[in-house]
Design a protein around this nucleic acid. Sequence first.
DNA 1: CTTGAAGTTGACCAAAAGGTAAACTATTCA
DNA 2: TGAATAGTTTACCTTTTGGTCAACTTCAAG
Lengths: 204, 204
Amino acid sequence: MGRKSDAKERLLEAALDLIWKRSYGVLTIDAICEKAGVKKGSFYYFFDSKSTLAAAALHESWYACGKDVYDKLFSASVPPLERITAFMKSVYEGQIEVQKEHGQVLGCPCFSVGSETCSEDEAVREKAREILSQQLRYFESAIRDAQADGAAAAGDAAAKAKCLFSFFEGSLAQARIHNDISYLKNLPEAALNMLQVQKNAAVG
Amino acid sequence: MGRKSDAKERLLEAALDLIWKRSYGVLTIDAICEKAGVKKGSFYYFFDSKSTLAAAALHESWYACGKDVYDKLFSASVPPLERITAFMKSVYEGQIEVQKEHGQVLGCPCFSVGSETCSEDEAVREKAREILSQQLRYFESAIRDAQADGAAAAGDAAAKAKCLFSFFEGSLAQARIHNDISYLKNLPEAALNMLQVQKNAAVG
DNA sequence: CTTGAAGTTGACCAAAAGGTAAACTATTCA
DNA sequence: TGAATAGTTTACCTTTTGGTCAACTTCAAG
């Protein structure tokens, strides 16, 4: 019973949007409230600090959206290396859209925020780490499957996944920093190279 | 003539330290002043905003320190691929020290700040971009030299450099986010792999 | 149609932040 | 010695921010 409201959702959305488009540091409770069209009193009805809200916003964005995308692209029904290339391609295309819409490549909010909050703000830091660790596991299991198929070179799959994921996130961040989508264009191809797939030499 | 002072240097140092250990977002003029042991009036005597100071701090840290390290490690007297592996190794070892001293892997301030300020704060953003672009060029020219020597696979050196540099910065950022030095351990080896050096198969 | 739970509002407060300026101090050159 | 220059300090102001609270509104179940 009682009154209904979507204010909580609006706050989560506003916070994520500010974090993604700008940064965690730029978050103020006033700014979030204004963007969400919610009064400060209501903010404190739902959350007890901006850190709590930000962690919740990252959580929602992953468990209610991002994860589904990963699940689809990394589906076991797709050949393992294709999961990776398809994922890379989809990120590239996604960021093209983002740049068109916002005038800026925005990259991955967890990675940016994770780096920003790594030495404080435990709630946010831990949430970013949690999500990034989950994303890493998609890479790892695709690599393991590719190795089992003989499609990827053998070797420590966890270490390779860390490399590939670092390369991926690093490229995304460069694209954000330089607002330059070209950092993402060769991602699919470069990912395959990293996994040392045997290639048919393209004879000119 | 007039009075002497190192207040300006102390402000630059304090700002860089705060940015590196925490983040750009956490910078406040009061905090910088307190850390530097300088009164706010003096701050405004030397700088006109925190953004100006931060850009100057990044500038100083690169042109008065960082660049020398790159120049030494990427010296033309060293075989090109060794420049890269030696660089990677030195970053790994450097960050071990950083973690020991500060309890945290801190990574590369330009990369963190660049990502944080990419959609505002033009002065800082441009300075971070400038420095990162210069760093990229060290990679690019080493790759070019390695290709000329036949030590690295042929192909678009600029694109390869972007890949390698993204991988490098991505790994550093992961190490920072997870406070986990292991992201950097295999950097030298992984860098060589990325450049597709012909390897002597290690026969067990 | 009332009652209580759920959510909203506006007014308010204290602290922190950005920013200014006039008076002061130290240095050096003439 | 005394300007002129370079840097420092203190006190002050305004705006922004984080945070609280009591009064108010809406809703739905009994």
